[in-house]
């Protein structure tokens, strides 16, 4: 019991440290590759490691669920990492930008999530480790009304389950 608590406390401290270092790195020099700086500090196999050293998301063209070469690259890295740290289960979230009708975008988000799911399965990740969910256009990350925002919102995000 004691041990478990200590581990949790330690993990929290590590997370806080990583966050603090990441902020420091950004503040120090924005031009510097802050992702690399923070990544160096991320505990291998941690969620932070996955976020900064692998990349949790891929992006899509308008009204498309096709994977670009860059997206396949990211998903290859995700597959390698997930194979190495196979204790993780995860959810693939499919999203759409706001330039579509609500119900179609729900289906489009599901189609994008399914594309990522199928790709990860083809790279040897067990289907029972993953579930998919579509948020359609309901959860944008960027909320300006121009192309730069829309392109960030057309995404599929691999979210590691916190409990795994």
């Amino acid at each position: 019991m004691m041990n478990v608590r200590q581990v949790i406390r330690g993990a929290r401290l590590a997370a806080v440290l990583v966050a603090a270092l990441a902020i420091a790195a950004c503040a120090k020099n924005e031009a510097e590759n802050s992702q690399g700086a923070a990544g160096a500090m991320a505990v291998p196999g941690s969620q932070q490691d996955f976020l900064v050293n692998v990349g949790d998301r891929v992006w899509f063209e308008t009204d498309s669920s096709e994977l670009s070469a860059k997206s396949r690259d990211t998903l290859d890295k995700q597959a390698q990492w997930l194979q190495r740290y196979n204790r993780y289960t995860f959810t693939i979230e499919g999203h759409a930008d706001e330039r579509g009708t609500r119900e179609y975008n729900l289906a489009l988000g599901a189609r994008r999530a399914a594309t990522v799911r199928d790709y990860l399965i083809s790279r040897g990740i067990a289907a029972n480790r993953m579930r998919t969910i579509s948020y359609g256009k309901e959860r944008p990350v960027a909320t300006c009304d121009d192309i730069s925002c829309w392109s960030q919102n057309r995404r599929a995000v691999t979210v590691l389950d916190a409990s795994s």
Partner: peptide, 24 residues
């Protein structure tokens, strides 16, 4: 995922989309 539900005019049925994989 089930979505886009509507009632039939007699109120006895619900029509909706069911997503399976990339298809709905």
């Amino acid at each position: 995922m089930t979505f886009a539900p509507r009632f039939s005019p007699d109120g006895q049925r619900v029509i909706m989309s069911l997503q399976q994989g990339g298809n709905s």
